[in-house]
Simulated assay, not measured.
Amino acid sequence: MIDYFEQLSQEEQEDITEVIQILYRQTFLLERKYDKRSGRMQYVREYRICSKHLEFLRAYYKVAGITLKENAHMGLIYIQGEALWGEKLPRLATIYLLVLKLIYDEQMASVSSSSYIVTTLGAVNGKAGDFRVLHGLPSPTEMRRTIALLKKYQIIEPLDVLEELNEHTRLIIYPCIHAVLMGDDIKELLETFGEEENIGDEAAIQSTFEDMPE
């Protein structure tokens, strides 16, 4: 493993180091992301680097008890292991994550031939309302902050200007939405949110992928 790394050029070594740090930080890499300047999905450089050195990186993470997996169908490379812990998110961000996963799964199960799903903010709030997990519509500021946070973690990509946020604001749901839960029943979890009257300001979501077909 060390011999493989040392035989690479300095540029390639730096690329691998960068990819390792990114995977530790966000647990996944997307093959393609939406580029607003071109208005289309663009291939991600770090994904190509990881794919090129996949076997080396698998051996590297295995030492730490972490599994590196690739789902070529969905365009994902991700790490999985008990040593990986999720971060605490605000309550609205947690609710939106659960709802987005539900919307994603529903559309993927219907007629979608793409691993990238487009929905609207109105649909997200409407679905959350169906489960009675929102006590009224969140403020525009809170919704903008939540969308910006989920964009930061590459869960979604807003297609419209956030300053003009409304129910028609379009959101791309990336396939890494699978990172939000480990096989739990989302509908039951959302119903639990609705039944609880005194939920704290923060809720924990483990950023670990559920089992997906290779």
Rank of each mutant, 00 (worst) to 15 (best):
residue 161 V to C: 13
residue 130 D to R: 10
residue 174 Y to L: 04
residue 122 G to E: 01
residue 135 H to L: 10
residue 114 S to E: 15
residue 169 T to S: 11
residue 150 L to R: 02
residue 118 V to M: 13
residue 132 R to L: 12
residue 145 R to D: 13
residue 150 L to M: 15
residue 151 K to I: 02
residue 113 S to T: 14
residue 142 E to P: 01
residue 173 I to Q: 01
residue 176 C to H: 05
residue 122 G to S: 03
residue 159 L to A: 12
residue 170 R to D: 02
residue 138 P to E: 00
residue 132 R to G: 08
residue 167 E to K: 13
residue 173 I to P: 01
residue 156 I to M: 12
residue 169 T to H: 10
residue 122 G to W: 03
residue 134 L to T: 04
residue 117 I to K: 02
residue 133 V to M: 06
residue 131 F to N: 00
residue 126 G to I: 08
residue 159 L to G: 05
residue 125 N to S: 08
residue 123 A to L: 07
residue 174 Y to Q: 02
residue 143 M to Q: 13
residue 137 L to W: 07
residue 142 E to Q: 09
residue 166 N to P: 05
residue 153 Y to M: 11
residue 157 E to K: 14
residue 149 L to G: 04
residue 146 T to L: 07
residue 160 D to P: 06
residue 136 G to E: 07
residue 154 Q to M: 10
residue 119 T to L: 02
residue 128 A to I: 07
residue 142 E to F: 02
residue 126 G to E: 13
residue 172 I to R: 05
residue 112 S to N: 09
residue 116 Y to A: 03
residue 113 S to I: 13
residue 129 G to F: 07
residue 133 V to L: 03
residue 170 R to Q: 11
residue 168 H to Q: 14
residue 126 G to Q: 12
residue 130 D to T: 12
residue 165 L to G: 03
residue 112 S to G: 04
residue 113 S to P: 00
residue 170 R to T: 03
residue 112 S to M: 11
residue 116 Y to V: 08
residue 128 A to R: 06
residue 165 L to K: 11
residue 155 I to M: 11
residue 160 D to I: 11
residue 127 K to I: 10
residue 113 S to A: 14
residue 147 I to P: 01
residue 165 L to S: 06
